[in-house]
Simulated assay, not measured.
Amino acid sequence: MTDFAARVRGALAAKGLTMRAAARALNYDPAYLCRVLNGKQQPSADMARALDELLEADGALSELASTLTSDDRARLAYSIARPSRLDVKTVVALGDVLAAQRRLDDALPAIAMLPATAAQWESVERLARDARGPHAEALHRVAAEWVQFIGWLHAEARNDPEAVRWLTEAEDRADDLNDGVLAAQAANFKGYLARQQGRPRAIVRWFLTAYHTPGAAPLQRVGDAVQAAHGFAMLGERDDARRLLDKAATLADSVGGDLPPGTAYWLTPTFSRMGIGLAHLALGDHADAAANLRTGLSGLPEDQRAAEWAAEYRRALEEAEAAV
């Protein structure tokens, strides 16, 4: 289920490396690496670390390789074969696998992540469809999170129609589960896609939808408000943009030490400074934009600073600093 082999093959392809070239770079027997990357042998901890360094994955591949124990794998295989026997440990293991995929997304391109993630989801979806018993609802929640993650990967890879389709499905599943956090995050990802498309009205529409979603977490609403402000600023509606920035600041003060929801683990008050920076840049406040973008980027964990999704903030910081 972790599909370590598929992840590494995708990452090697994204960097233009063959298995043989990787074996030479790592000083590993090509036959051994071939067995690992064809899924016929589990990687050693040393090999996972070496691949991490080669592919600049910041520990994500090592984490992925160690996510499931042999017992976890046996339990998953048993549950897939006998869905009516689903137990809580299987649900937890699947949640751990998904968390490892999210972590890996911070290190690898979305296009390298999508094939294996979609294949994993098919197994999870089959299990969720046929599962029975007291743990079925928890598994449906994991499956809904998986749908949302695939939608995010399509948005990041700019497969726009597929992104909209998956994120709409994620919204529907979140509503079925009465989960405001998941529903708000799916709308937020549609706002992200609109921003990549350069559609300011859609930016405002989707981030305000996320902001007003019942059950959204306070830190989600802070981020949604500042990103909606960015859309208003792009439209030239400066008063609305500044009103939302003020509202986000007030809300952020009230959040205090609240932790972000697990499905939006990246959200912190510092993270929202990057969205504030985008809004100020669109308003022409270049010094404020640069200060906020710099603070937001420097506040990211090391494994997120080179993430594909962070590139727009790095470009915005360069633009703001050049204009100061």
Score class of each variant (00 low, 15 high):
residue 260 P to Q: 01
residue 304 Q to S: 05
residue 216 A to S: 10
residue 121 W to A: 12
residue 160 D to V: 13
residue 7 R to A: 15
residue 31 A to S: 11
residue 255 V to P: 02
residue 132 R to C: 12
residue 253 D to I: 04
residue 305 R to T: 00
residue 252 A to E: 13
residue 308 E to R: 07
residue 31 A to K: 00
residue 269 P to K: 01
residue 287 A to F: 09
residue 139 L to E: 03
residue 96 D to A: 14
residue 272 S to Y: 13
residue 1 M to Q: 12
residue 268 T to E: 02
residue 152 W to P: 02
residue 172 D to C: 12
residue 317 L to I: 04
residue 101 Q to W: 15
residue 217 A to W: 03
residue 174 A to G: 15
residue 113 M to H: 10
residue 140 H to Y: 10
residue 271 F to V: 00
residue 298 S to C: 10
residue 316 A to W: 10
residue 57 A to Q: 07
residue 255 V to W: 03
residue 248 A to T: 00
residue 174 A to P: 03
residue 176 D to Y: 12
residue 81 A to Q: 10
residue 291 A to Y: 05
residue 302 E to F: 10
residue 112 A to K: 04
residue 318 E to I: 08
residue 143 A to I: 04
residue 220 Q to W: 03
residue 145 E to Q: 15
residue 72 D to A: 10
residue 202 A to W: 11
residue 279 A to D: 11
residue 288 D to R: 11
residue 13 A to K: 12
residue 307 A to W: 03
residue 219 L to F: 03
residue 28 Y to R: 09
residue 322 A to I: 00
residue 6 A to R: 09
residue 108 L to G: 04
residue 122 E to W: 11
residue 230 H to I: 00
residue 301 P to Q: 04
residue 204 V to S: 04
residue 106 D to N: 13
residue 10 G to N: 05
residue 81 A to L: 09
residue 300 L to G: 07
residue 303 D to C: 14
residue 105 D to T: 02
residue 44 S to F: 11
residue 159 N to A: 15
residue 77 A to H: 09
residue 6 A to M: 08
residue 14 A to H: 09
residue 232 F to N: 00
residue 301 P to R: 03
residue 16 G to D: 05
residue 245 L to K: 04
residue 161 P to L: 08
residue 278 L to N: 09
residue 76 L to D: 04
residue 21 A to D: 13
residue 289 A to S: 11
residue 9 R to Q: 13
residue 305 R to C: 02
residue 309 W to S: 05
residue 99 A to F: 01
residue 221 R to G: 04
residue 20 R to N: 13
residue 314 R to F: 06
residue 205 R to H: 14
residue 292 N to V: 01
residue 258 D to P: 03
residue 178 N to Q: 14
residue 218 P to G: 01
residue 202 A to E: 14
residue 50 A to P: 11
residue 305 R to K: 12
residue 51 L to G: 08
residue 206 W to F: 15
residue 269 P to Y: 02
residue 227 Q to C: 14
residue 101 Q to N: 14
residue 226 V to S: 07
residue 44 S to V: 06
residue 267 L to N: 01
residue 266 W to G: 01
residue 219 L to P: 01
residue 79 S to R: 10
residue 210 A to I: 03
residue 106 D to Q: 08
residue 11 A to N: 03
residue 294 R to N: 08
residue 178 N to E: 14
residue 39 G to E: 02
residue 190 K to T: 06
residue 97 V to F: 08
residue 214 P to N: 03
residue 260 P to H: 01
residue 242 R to W: 08
